[in-house]
Amino acid sequence: MAEPDRADPDPEQAWDGPRQPWLLNGDCRGPRHRSLLLEITTRAVFPTVLVFSVYLLLVGHYGPGGGFSAGLVAGLAFVLRHIAGGGGDLGSGRAVRPPTVIGAGMAVGVVSALLPLAFGLRVLESAKLGAALPVLGAVEVQTSLFLEVGVYLLIVGVVLELLRSLGSGIERDLEESGERARQ
């Protein structure tokens, strides 16, 4: 992605404006709303939490975890980013619309429910797939994992949609009404 547009730097904000378009893609909040500690922590923690959510997703069939909790954990990572970076961060850094994520999750879920029919099994029936991968060794996967992936996407999409509509939406409304009150 190109360097974000910083054509007219507001001197009040430019001094601590982000050098990299990672967390706050140039859409910087006022310095009073920022917390340096939180931003740095978020940058460190965000990918870790996402990886952990994938771990929960994969381990879910035999251990504690599964699509729903993994999706919520991943959603929490985005909530953290929203708190640290404000509405602008999520709004600008995201290429996919949340409803698309929701729809994709549902589609994956329904298709994985119907897919066993192609192998002569019943709807929603699951089987165990085993393979010997070169580095990882023997890997076993329950096919219900695909359903879990659908749930995971669905939940992440719902959380993103919530952040967009209730999070950023309300913030924007409040800012607008605040501006009106000052005029």
């Binding site: 619309r97 409803p99 698309t100 929701i102 729809g103 994709a104 999750g105 549902m106 589609a107 879920g109 329904v110 298709v111 429910a113 119907l114 029919l117 019943r122 709807v123 929603l124």
Partner: peptide
């Protein structure tokens, strides 16, 4: 037949997913 009975539930769900994704 046991497949047919699941479709009245699954097909509308799939349709809902498709209409969300292709909302435009």
């Amino acid at each position: 037949m046991s497949t047919v009975i699941t479709l009245p539930v699954l097909l509308p769900m799939l349709g809902a997913a498709v209409t969300v994704v292709f909302a435009r």
